[in-house]
């Protein structure tokens, strides 16, 4: 069972590798959009990675800015796909 913490770790690992610019440190509450760590193109790339990594399909309804506010909200979005009733 994949928990939200390990999804968060996957998100942070991806950001540390691929995001441009990279803030000096990032954690689960880093404001990704405010700090422009993520933009619309990198959001698509991040989602593509997470879909493959966790074998989920992200529905279009989830592509709203609130879901990409922090690594925590991204992880919660992915976790929701394991339990659509959530």
């Amino acid at each position: 069972m994949t928990d939200t913490i390990s999804i968060e770790e996957a998100v942070l690992d991806w950001l540390r590798e691929y995001s441009e610019p990279k803030p000096a440190s990032m954690d689960s509450e880093t404001r990704l959009l405010d700090l422009e760590v993520l933009d619309s193109l990198s959001i698509l790339q991040l989602v593509g990675y997470l879909e493959q990594r966790f074998d989920v399909n992200m529905p279009l309804e989830e592509f709203v800015p609130d879901n990409f506010a922090t690594p925590k909200t991204v992880a919660e979005m992915v976790a929701r796909q394991f339990d659509p009733a959530a």
Partner: peptide
């Protein structure tokens, strides 16, 4: 209204 979803539709799905 949904620019991120629009981008996903155009580039991916």
């Amino acid at each position: 209204e949904y620019p991120l979803a629009f981008a996903q539709m155009l580039h991916r799905v």
